[in-house]
Design a protein around this nucleic acid. Structure first.
Length: 804
RNA sequence: GCCGCUGUGGUGGAAUGGCAGACACUGUGGACUUAAAAUCCACUGGUAGCGAUACCGUACCGGUUCGAGUCCGGUCAGCGGCACCA
C-alpha cells in the first residue's frame, strides 16, 4: 500500500482525543507499579495566551514521562493553573469584568492550546489556585503557620510599588524596581503580615545536600540566604549605653577608628538630648528616609554621613575613644544596624575615612593602607594589635573570640542576609488572609471549619493610593464577630501574594479531589515527593525557595513525610526571537505556538524545541531549522512506503539499532534531547540508504520516536497493524553485546598527528594493533630511520607512535 | 566589586584527555520539471594544489601530557545572579 504525503492536520487531534477517551495518561493512586512523579511549573494563564517558550519544559518532561510509562512506571504528570495575580486583576479593572471571569477565559484558551501539543498530562487532576476548594487549603496552611508563630504582623518599612500600588517581597524587587512592571519601588512604613522564613535559613542551606539540583541553583540559593559567621561586640558609649555591632572580622578590632550607625538606629532617639547637633542628625535621617531603595543602595555614589557631637564610643580592646557617625551605608535591617569601622581593611570604611579625614590603622601586614583598603588579607600577619600581634589572621580570629568571651564583651554570631517574607498584598485577586482583628483579643485566626474564606464579590477592584486593599471598602464583608470572644471584629483585608498557592500545589496533585485534607495520607505515602521538577532559573530565589520553606514547615507539623519537596530539579533555557533577542511584542519577534501547530503540526514543534540546542541554555528561534524537523518527520512517514516484511532487524543494521536505543535512552536522562534526536536522524539516514525497512525495524524506530513526536507515531503504529497504542508499549531494549562493532577504524598517529587509518578487529590486542600500524606503508615511511620512543594504544581508538 | 556559567564553521550546535565540527540549517552545483516549488544527489572551516595530500584552525597568552576544545595558571569578552550585608 502506498501512503500519501504526511499531513498532520486531523491526525493530531484524532490521537489526542483517543488518549483522552482511553484515559491512558491518568495516574493511579492504587497501583502495584513503581511510581514516578514528574512536574513542570504550572503556568500563569495570562491574557497573551501560550508562549512558544512554554512547550519546551512541558515537552521535555513529557518525553521523560512517556518513557517512564513505557518502562512500567505509574506516572503522575499533572498540570494546573497558577491563576491569582496582578495582570489578570489589572485587565479586569480596565475592562470592567470580574477577575474570575477573565481567569476562566484565559484558562480555557491555555487549556486548548496546551492540549494541542499532545503533552501526556493527567487532565483529571487539573487544579486551579483560585478555586475556593483549592485555596481553602492555602488558607489552612497559613493558619498552621500562624498557630506556630511563623506568621506575624509587623509595622515595618516595606517595598512599595508605585504602579501596582502594592507591597512587594524583597525577592520581587529587581535592581530597585518592581520585578513585574518595572516601576519605581519606594520604602513605605506599613503593618504587614510576615512569614518567618529566616527561622528555616540554616535548614534551607543544609538540606540542599539532600537534593539533586544543578550546582548553580544551589549556589544561588546559598548566596541569597547569605550566611556569614562573625561576632557581636559590645562597645560602650560615653552615655553609658551599650552599642552592639556585628562584624565578620573581630580580629581587626584594634584597627577600629570610628563607628557608624544606621540613620534608623533606635539609640539615636535615646541620645537626642546628649547629641548637640541633633538638628543636623534629623535632617540626615529625613533625607535617608525619602530616598528610594534604588538610590539608597547605589554603590557608585559617594559616602555621606553625620558625625554625632557630644556622644562617642570606646573601643573595648584598647580603651581608645572613637567618634560615632550615622550614614545610610549602614542598613538597619542587617546585623545590629551599627558597625565598627576598620578603614585599613574595608573598602567602604576606607572611602568614608578619607572623606571625613579619619585615622587609618594597618592591623594586617601586606598592603599599603595609605593608598587603598587592604581587604584580601586572610593569609596575613597581625600588627598594631596588642594581644594579637604576630598571629596569623586565622589564629587571631580564634584568640580574639576567646578574649571577647572571657571579658564578656562579645560572642560568636551567625547572620543571614535572608529577610522574613512580606506576605500581604493590598490587592483583590488573591487568597484572603483568614484572620480577624478583635479589639479585645488582637489577631484571631478563623476556625478551620470556616474555611474557605471566599473573596467577596466587589464591584470595583481599583487599588487604593492610601495603601489599603480594595477589600477595605467592603464593609459588610469586613464586619464580623471574633471567633474567640464573640465581640465585634474586623476581617483582614490584605490578600496573599501569588507565591502562596504555588508553594504547595505539587501536594494537591497527589490527591486533588480530597475534601477532608489538603492531601490524604495514603496518597502522600504512595507519591512521597516529586521525582523530577523542571522549571525556570528565575524562580530560584522565589518560588523554589518559598515552596521548600513551606514544605519543611509541613514536615515539622507532620503533614508531609519528606524534608524536601523535590528530589531532582532541572532548568531549561529561554527561547529567544529569531534575531537573538528576548521575544516581546515591542520587538516584533514573537512566534505564536498556535501558528506553528497549525502550519507544521505539534509533532514538528515538539521535535524542533527539543532539537534546538542545549536544553539548559537559551536558543534563538529558527524557522529554517523547524522546517528541517518537519522534513525529518516526513522522511519517517515515507519509510512506510519502503516497508518490507520481516520482524527482525537485518544483521547489517543490528549494531546501529542497538546503539541508537541505548543512546536515546541515556540522553533523555541527562537532558540531551538534541543528541538523542540527532541519533534518530542518523539512523533514519542509514536505513533510507538501504532502500527498505523491515517491519521489525520500523516498529522499534516508531517507539523510539514516539516520545518526541507521539501523534505521527501512533498513526504509523496503527498502520503497521499493531494492537494497542504506541504509548502503551514497552520501551525497546538493547543488547550491550550487540552495540559493539566487530571491526573498528583506528587512527595511527605519529607524534600526535594522524597519518593513517586502519580497519581492525574491535578486540585486537595492543601488540597486534601496533604491528598493524608499523605494517602500513605511510607509517613505515614516516618512521623510517627514526627511533621509536614510545608506542601508545588506546583500545578501539588509536595508535600513537612517538619517534625521534 | 563578589559569586556562577559560557566562548568551537556563515548559523543552531556535536565531541568519557584520543580522528575537531556529529546531527541539522544556510549556501553552491547537479538530477527531475516546459518552468518553479517540493524531493533526491554531491560539495560546503581557512590557505595552497588538477589531485592524492600538506599546513593552519576550538577567544588570547602560557603550562601539564605521547596527545588538550576538554585539565591547570593568567588575560580578554559575553551572559546570569548578588551587591554599601559590615
Amino acid at each position: 500500500m502506498k501512503y500519501d504525503r504526511y499531513d498532520h492536520k486531523g491526525l493530531e487531534s484524532k490521537w489526542q482525543d483517543r488518549w483522552e477517551e482511553e484515559g491512558v495518561f491518568h495516574a493511579s493512586n492504587s497501583s502495584e507499579k513503581p511510581k514516578y512523579y514528574a512536574l513542570i511549573e504550572f503556568p500563569y494563564p495570562s491574557g497573551q495566551g501560550l508562549h512558544v517558550g512554554h512547550p519546551r519544559p512541558y515537552t521535555a518532561l513529557d518525553i521523560v514521562s512517556r518513557k517512564r510509562r513505557m518502562q512500567g512506571y505509574n506516572v503522575l504528570y499533572p498540570i494546573g493553573w497558577d491563576a491569582f495575580g496582578l495582570p489578570t486583576e489589572n485587565y479586569a479593572i480596565k475592562n470592567h469584568v470580574h477577575p474570575a471571569d477573565v481567569t476562566k477565559k484565559n484558562v480555557a484558551r491555555f487549556k486548548q492550546q496546551i492540549r494541542s501539543l499532545g503533552i501526556s498530562f493527567d487532565w483529571s487532576r487539573e487544579i486551579n489556585t483560585t478555586d475556593p476548594e483549592y485555596y481553602k487549603w492555602t488558607q489552612w496552611i497559613f493558619l498552621q503557620l500562624f498557630k506556630h508563630g511563623l506568621a506575624y504582623k509587623k509595622e515595618m518599612a516595606v517595598n512599595w510599588c508605585t504602579s501596582c500600588k502594592c507591597v512587594l517581597a524583597n525577592e520581587e524587587v529587581v535592581d530597585g524596581v518592581c520585578e513585574r512592571c518595572g516601576s519605581e519601588v519606594v520604602r513605605k512604613v506599613k503593618s504587614q503580615w510576615m512569614l518567618k522564613i529566616t527561622e528555616y535559613a540554616q535548614r534551607l542551606i543544609d538540606d540542599l545536600d539532600l537534593v539533586d539540583y544543578p550546582e548553580r541553583v544551589k549556589t544561588q540559593q546559598k548566596n541569597w540566604i547569605g550566611r556569614s559567621t562573625g561576632a557581636e561586640v559590645d562597645f560602650k558609649a560615653t552615655t553609658g549605653d551599650v552599642l552592639t555591632i556585628y562584624t565578620t572580622r573581630p580580629d581587626t578590632l584594634y584597627g577600629v577608628t570610628y563607628m557608624v550607625m544606621s540613620p534608623e538606629h533606635p539609640l539615636l532617639e535615646t541620645w537626642a538630648d546628649r547629641i548637640s547637633n541633633m538638628q543636623e542628625v534629623r535632617e540626615y535621617q529625613e533625607q535617608a528616609a525619602r530616598k528610594s531603595e534604588f538610590e539608597r543602595t547605589e554603590v557608585a555614589k559617594e559616602k555621606t554621613g553625620v558625625r554625632l557631637q557630644g556622644v562617642a564610643a570606646v573601643n573595648p580592646v584598647n580603651g581608645k575613644e572613637i567618634p560615632i557617625f550615622i550614614s545610610d551605608y549602614v542598613l538597619i535591617s542587617y546585623g545590629t544596624g551599627a558597625i565598627m569601622a576598620v578603614p585599613g581593611h574595608d573598602t567602604r570604611d576606607w572611602e568614608f575615612a578619607k572623606k571625613f579625614d579619619l585615622p587609618i590603622i594597618e592591623v594586617v601586614k601586606g598592603g599599603d593602607v595609605t593608598k587603598e583598603a587592604f581587604t584580601d588579607c586572610e593569609t596575613g600577619i597581625m600588627v598594631n594589635s596588642g594581644i594579637l600581634d604576630g598571629l596569623s589572621v586565622e589564629d587571631a580570629k580564634v584568640r580574639i573570640r576567646e578574649y571577647l568571651e572571657e571579658k564578656g564583651i562579645g560572642h560568636s554570631k551567625v547572620n543571614f542576609k535572608l529577610r522574613d517574607w512580606v506576605f500581604s498584598r493590598q490587592r483583590y485577586w488573591g487568597e484572603p488572609i483568614p484572620v480577624v482583628h478583635c479589639e479585645k483579643c488582637g489577631y484571631v485566626p478563623l476556625p478551620e471549619d470556616q474555611l474557605p474564606l471566599t473573596l467577596p464579590n466587589v464591584s470595583s477592584y481599583e487599588p487604593t493610593d492610601n495603601g489599603e486593599s480594595p477589600l477595605a471598602h467592603m464593609t459588610d464583608w469586613i464586619r464580623t464577630t471574633c471567633p474567640h470572644c464573640g465581640g465585634p471584629a474586623l476581617r483582614e483585608t490584605d490578600t496573599m501574594p501569588q507565591w502562596a498557592g504555588s508553594s504547595w500545589y505539587f501536594l494537591r496533585y497527589m490527591d486533588p479531589h480530597n475534601s477532608e485534607a489538603l492531601v490524604g495520607k495514603d496518597a502522600l505515602a504512595y507519591w512521597n515527593q516529586v521525582d523530577w521538577y523542571n522549571g525556570g532559573m528565575e524562580h530560584t530565589t522565589l518560588h523554589l525557595l518559598y515552596s521548600r520553606f513551606w514544605h519543611k514547615f509541613l514536615y515539622d507539623i507532620g503533614v508531609v513525610p519528606t524534608k524536601e519537596p523535590y528530589a531532582k530539579r532541572t532548568s531549561h533555557g529561554m527561547i529567544l526571537g529569531e534575531n537573538g533577542e528576548k521575544m516581546s511584542k515591542s520587538r516584533g519577534n514573537v512566534v505564536n505556538p498556535d501558528d506553528i501547530v497549525n502550519e507544521y503540526g505539534a509533532d514538528t514543534l515538539r521535535l524542533y524545541e527539543m532539537f534546538i540546542g542545549d536544553f539548559e541554555k537559551s536558543a534563538p528561534w529558527s524557522t529554517n531549522s523547524l522546517r528541517g524537523c518537519r522534513r525529518f518527520i516526513e522522511r519517517f512517514w515515507n519509510l512506510q512506503n519502503i516497508l518490507v516484511e520481516g520482524d527482525a532487524i537485518r544483521p547489517e543494521l543490528e549494531t546501529s539499532f542497538h546503539k541508537t536505543i541505548r543512546k536515546v535512552g541515556e540522553d533523555i536522562e541527562t537532558l540531551k534531547f538534541n543528541t538523542a534526536i540527532a541519533a534518530l536522524m542518523a539512523l533514519i539516514n542509514e536505513v533510507a540508504d538501504k532502500g527498505s525497512i523491515t517491519k521489525g525495524e520500523l516498529k522499534i524506530f516508531t517507539l523510539l520516536l514516539s516520545l518526541f513526536a507521539p501523534h505521527v507515531c501512533e498513526e504509523v503504529w496503527q498502520n503497521l497493524g499493531m494492537e494497542g497504542l504506541a504509548c502503551q508499549q514497552s520501551w525497546p531494549e538493547y543488547d550491550e553485546a550487540k552495540c559493539q562493532e566487530s571491526t573498528v577504524e583506528i587512527v595511527v598517529q605519529v607524534n600526535g598527528k594522524v597519518r593513517a587509518r586502519l580497519q581492525v578487529a574491535a578486540d585486537i590486542s595492543k601488540e597486534a594493533a601496533i604491528s598493524a600500524a608499523h605494517a602500513d606503508e605511510r607509517i613505515a615511511a614516516e618512521t623510517a630511520g627514526k627511533t621509536i620512543v614510545k608506542e601508545i594504544y588506546v583500545p578501539g581508538k588509536l595508535v600513537n607512535l612517538v619517534v625521534r
